[in-house]
C-alpha cells in the first residue's frame, strides 16, 4: 500500500496540477442514453490523478436529486428516453443539461432510426455542449468550468 501511495504522490508531483483559481462547485449526474462506453471511460478518467476534476468542485453524485447538471451521453435510444426524462424530472431547480460527446450532440451517425428516440436537443433544454468522440477529460473539465464561471464555452 505504501508503494502505491508513494507512486501516486510522485505522479501528482509530475502532473503538477495547480490549485483552482476560483471557488464554486457543480454536482454532476451522468445518464448513459446509449453511448459506446468511450464517453464513460473519459468521464471516469477525469477523476484520475492527472485531471482530478474534484479539485475544481466538480463531483459526480449518485442521485439526480443531488445534482445541478445532468451529463447525458449517447444518441438517446428509444429504451433510455423514459429513464432519462425521469432523471431530469427528479432534479431540483435550477437544473442544467449537458450533452457529453458527439452522439448526445446529435451527430446522428450511429444507430437505426427505429431504435432511437428524438435527439437530446428535442427532449430536454441543452445548455452545455461538449464535443468530441469522445471528448478528452480536459475538454470535459474546460466546458463544465466555463459554465460554472459564466464564461463563453471553451474553444
Amino acid at each position: 500500500m505504501f508503494v502505491l501511495l508513494r507512486q501516486l504522490q510522485r505522479l501528482r508531483r509530475d502532473a503538477a496540477l495547480t490549485a483552482p483559481p476560483r471557488r464554486g462547485s457543480l454536482a454532476l449526474r451522468h445518464v448513459d442514453a446509449g453511448s459506446c462506453n468511450a464517453c464513460e471511460h473519459e468521464l471516469t478518467a477525469a477523476a484520475n490523478p492527472y485531471y482530478d476534476l474534484a479539485r475544481h468542485g466538480l463531483n459526480v453524485v449518485a442521485s439526480p436529486r443531488h445534482a445541478d447538471v445532468l451529463l447525458v451521453t449517447g444518441p438517446v435510444t428509444a429504451r433510455m428516453r423514459e429513464p432519462l426524462l425521469k432523471a431530469y424530472e427528479a432534479m431540483p431547480e435550477p437544473r442544467t443539461v449537458a450533452a457529453l460527446g458527439d452522439c448526445a450532440m446529435g451527430c446522428g451517425v450511429l444507430g437505426d432510426a427505429a431504435a432511437l428516440a428524438p435527439p437530446l436537443d428535442e427532449l430536454l433544454p441543452v445548455a452545455i455542449r461538449i464535443p468530441g468522440c469522445p471528448p478528452a477529460p480536459d475538454v470535459i473539465a474546460a466546458h463544465l468550468l466555463a459554465h460554472l464561471h459564466g464564461e463563453p464555452p471553451a474553444a
Binding site: 453511448s35 449517447g74 433510455m80 451517425v109 437505426d112 431504435a115
Partner: peptide, 25 residues
Amino acid sequence: FYKHRGLERAAQGRPVAEALPVVQR
C-alpha cells in the same frame, strides 16, 4: 439492451468503408 441502437441495421446497406465506423463504435 437499454442501449440497443440498431447498429447492425444501421450498418447494412452501406459500403464497407462506411459501415466500419458503425461496427467499431
